[in-house]
């Protein structure tokens, strides 16, 4: 029996959660929301995390009903992510690990998403599409690693959406992607945009530049902001579904799992479902509680590591902005 506490703060979400043998005891989150037209910067985001971390930690412990003494392991996000926010949360993880005398484990953020997705959906060996503000990867498990089959060669898909939202001055509350999704539902006219797939890799920066340069002109020419949101979503999601399908065919896989913040977009899920239906595959997706960055996913991946005997030396418990999914040796799967 393992009780794990996870702390996450690699981007603008501060999340702390507690897991007990695959059950979520608590999952608390606080998001740093910037004004329309602005993104979140490392310094201010870290400041936000520092101001809220004790409150969120207290909530997570109170809601879980466990005492600190019952916790077996403290897990925190080691990377990838923004340096200052990562560090602000890692300091708290180190402090409580020493205060309560618990082992400390640094978790790869992407692995956290994958393991949480597998736990919640029950997908055994899925091809994973991991889409968020900082990451876009198509991943499949093979020989003790989560291997990256395809990825973005420039900016992440969520970053493309966030920055497009700034062009239209959409609200960042609850998230720019959510507001684009709602507007896209009312879009009718499709504008042909650049479409960039290279094998199993994708590129979004050209599409973003195209939109940034022409958005004003499109609006003058009679297209609505809703049409622009619609066209952007249709194009970039088609790229993601196509590359995921390539990975599926290459791996002979019959399961797709979508994780990461952009993964709760219902249009993306719907398109992926249509692709899966056409080839007799099964789609697994989760909702915003687990798709969007959270603490329990770090607790879950950490619990798996802890159960399989992973220990981390104190001096290895640092943070790193660059930490690829395939750098982690997967010790907890035996397939």
């Amino acid at each position: 029996m393992v009780i794990a506490l996870g702390l996450e703060g690699s981007a603008n979400k501060l999340g702390i959660g507690i897991m007990k043998d695959g059950k979520v005891l608590s999952n608390c989150r606080k998001t740093y929301i910037t004004p329309p037209g602005e993104g979140f910067l490392p310094k201010e985001t870290a400041e936000h995390h520092r101001q809220n971390v004790t409150k969120v930690l207290k909530d997570a412990i109170d809601q879980s009903g466990v005492k600190p003494s019952e916790i077996d392991v403290i897990c925190y996000t080691k990377g990838p992510g923004m340096g200052a926010p990562l560090a602000s949360v890692a300091v708290v993880a180190r402090t409580i690990a020493q205060l309560w005398n618990k082992p400390l484990l640094g978790v790869n953020h992407c692995i956290g998403h994958i393991e949480m997705g597998r736990l919640i959906t029950g997908a055994a060996n899925p091809t994973v599409l991991y889409v968020s503000g900082g990451n876009t990867q198509i991943i499949a498990y093979s020989r003790e690693r989560y291997r990256i089959f395809g990825e973005t060669i420039d900016i992440a898909v969520g970053n493309c959406l966030d920055r497009f939202a700034r062009v239209l001055k959409l609200s960042n509350d609850p998230s720019p992607g959510y507001n684009i999704e709602q507007m896209a539902k009312k879009g009718k006219k499709y504008i042909q945009l650049p479409y960039c797939v290279k094998g199993m890799d994708v590129s979004f920066s050209g599409i973003l530049t195209f939109m940034e340069e022409r958005a004003e002109k499109f609006l003058k020419d009679g297209y609505t902001p809703e049409d622009l949101c619609f066209s952007l979503q249709e194009t970039i999601f088609a790229m993601l579904v196509e590359t995921t399908e390539r990975a599926l065919a290459h791996c002979n896989s019959q399961e797709v799992l979508i994780v990461g913040g952009v993964g709760c977009n219902e249009r993306l899920q719907e398109m992926m479902k249509q692709m899966c239906d056409e080839r007799g595959a099964k789609l697994f997706a989760t909702d915003e509680r687990f798709c969007i960055d959270n603490g329990v996913m770090i607790a879950q991946a950490g619990a798996e590591m802890f159960s399989s005997g992973t220990k981390m030396k104190w001096e290895d418990c640092f943070i790193t902005q660059r930490y690829r999914t395939d750098e982690v040796k997967v010790t907890w799967r035996n397939d």
């Binding site: 042909q192 479409y195 088609a238």
Partner: peptide, 13 residues
């Protein structure tokens, strides 16, 4: 025809 894609995008691709 890939139903997940917008018809315009699908035919041009």
């Amino acid at each position: 025809v890939k139903k997940y894609r917008h018809p315009d995008l699908d035919s041009s691709l």
